[in-house]
């Protein structure tokens, strides 16, 4: 039986008077790619912040590899549960400085060959290393953001709509990269996407969230034949 990389038990989370996550119970299987789909405002990105320890639940329990999240040192947790956000924020400096950031935070420095290889893996040319990261296009920044998250070699990788600003070719490159990392290192991937074809194509499992609730979860094929009426409407594109 596949162990859960991350397990939620009756998790609730509120902020600014809004009940954002409601009684979430479910798990993300270890070593698999799970896609997280649902309309905007479903609480998907907030769920990621809980997995990464950037926020704590108001009630309920989150287990990472069977151990309560509070028992982890936050720094260690975040290095092991990496997150690439949709915003692809860059710090001031060159592409190399941004790529080096996770190691700089540990007082180390990235090997130049490793940096070039990472850029190549995400489909970026290695001659941009000295360029100002803030001058990159949206797609390039997104790819650099993924490469930067990979520097920590996380056991779990949370990807928040990382291909939404990419063209089809780049989308395909990133999908291949994610599948390659998943197969090679057994990294657990949790991927928020609005693209249901993408969810079916690369996800082993899926979670469908709406209005802060987990409506359905299971094998990705559930998206082809959902049980819940709301999920059926969502899949048909009647809920955005």
């Amino acid at each position: 039986m596949i162990q859960a990389a991350i397990k939620f038990h009756d998790v609730n989370y509120s902020a600014d008077g809004l009940h954002i996550l409601k009684n979430i119970t479910g798990s993300f299987p270890e070593g698999k790619i799970t896609t997280l789909v649902g309309p905007s405002g479903a609480g998907k990105s907030t769920l990621f912040k809980l997995c990464n320890g950037l926020r704590s639940p108001d009630s309920g329990e989150i287990l990472i590899k069977g151990k309560p999240i509070e028992e982890y040192n936050p720094v260690e947790l975040r290095r092991n549960v990496g997150i690439a956000l949709q915003s692809a924020t860059m710090v001031k400096g060159s592409v190399l400085e941004n790529l080096d950031l996770p190691l700089t935070l540990q007082g180390k420095s990235i090997d130049l060959d490793d940096a070039k290889e990472l850029l190549h893996d995400v489909g970026l040319a290695d001659n941009i290393l000295e360029r100002n990261a803030k001058d990159l296009s949206g797609g390039q920044r997104q790819k650099l953001s993924i490469a930067r998250t990979l520097v920590n070699k996380p056991k779990v990788l949370l990807l928040d709509e990382i291909t939404s600003s990419l063209d089809r070719v780049s989308q395909h490159d990133i999908e291949e990269l994610i599948e390659k990392i998943n197969e090679k290192y057994g990294t657990t991937m949790i991927w928020i996407t609005h693209n249901l074809d993408q969810a079916l194509r690369i996800g082993h499992c899926t979670w469908v969230m709406m209005n802060g609730e987990l409506i359905e979860s299971g094998d990705s094929s559930l998206l082809m034949n959902p049980n819940d009426k709301r999920v059926q409407d969502f899949v048909k594109g009647e809920i955005e």
Partner: peptide, 16 residues
């Protein structure tokens, strides 16, 4: 705020 959270997500300390 985005930069602050980015560094935290990469395993940086509050001071960093």
């Amino acid at each position: 705020q985005d930069e602050t959270e980015l560094i935290l997500t990469l395993g940086g300390t509050p001071k960093q």
